[in-house]
């Protein structure tokens, strides 16, 4: 704010006014439902997860092996060429211990979350997932981990077919 301006506009609704309901508001709950087609690349990726496998796409031009897979290489801007099975092991690129959920409310049990660089894909090709079977104080960047899969009858073609990654 410029020192030349001496008054500024805006009326705060104070926390007390919120608590006591002393302001006029109109409440509305919006409950839409969506059905997303998973797409060409991710449909195949999810189908393979159901079979307990992680797959990637390879671009012959830059020779990168891409996870999550995509049907086009965004760097070479051409179609990718081949499906490649990669490993279900990887390295923790980074991690966090989350004490809050999606709506910012405090969780009773923290979620362990990590970016896991997948073995067999190009360097730095990570996916977001959870960690499990590990003490919080023992998690470290560079830790080797492996996917813990749901039982084959439980798997439904979703990222959650992998329960979490555990240290190996």
């Amino acid at each position: 704010m410029s020192q030349k301006i001496t008054s500024y506009q805006g009326r705060e609704i104070t926390p007390d006014e919120v608590k006591e309901g002393k302001y006029l508001d109109i409440v509305y709950k919006f409950e839409p439902k969506y059905s997303w087609a998973a797409g060409v690349a991710i449909s195949r990726f999810l189908t393979e997860l159901k079979d307990g496998k992680i797959v990637a796409r390879k671009c012959y031009k830059c020779e990168r092996i891409l996870v999550p897979p995509r049907m086009y290489c965004e760097q070479c801007y051409r179609p990718t060429d081949e499906w490649v099975q990669v490993k279900d092991t990887g390295t923790v690129n980074t991690f966090s211990i989350s004490h809050v959920g999606t709506d910012a409310r405090r969780l009773k049990t923290p979620i362990l979350v990590a970016v896991v660089d997948i073995d067999g894909a190009s360097p730095g090709m990570g996916i977001l997932h959870n960690l499990g079977e590990v003490e919080r104080s023992k998690i470290s960047v560079g830790m080797k981990v492996q996917a813990v899969w749901k039982g084959s009858e439980e798997r439904q073609g979703a990222i959650t077919d992998i329960r979490y990654f555990k240290p190996i």
Binding site: W36, I42, L46, P68, V100, I111, V113, L128, I159, T160
Partner: peptide, 15 residues
């Protein structure tokens, strides 16, 4: 977040 690969994990922006 990606609706198929990330949101089912319980994402929050803070992650």
């Amino acid at each position: 977040f990606d609706q198929i690969l990330e949101r089912p994990l319980g994402t929050t922006l803070l992650w």
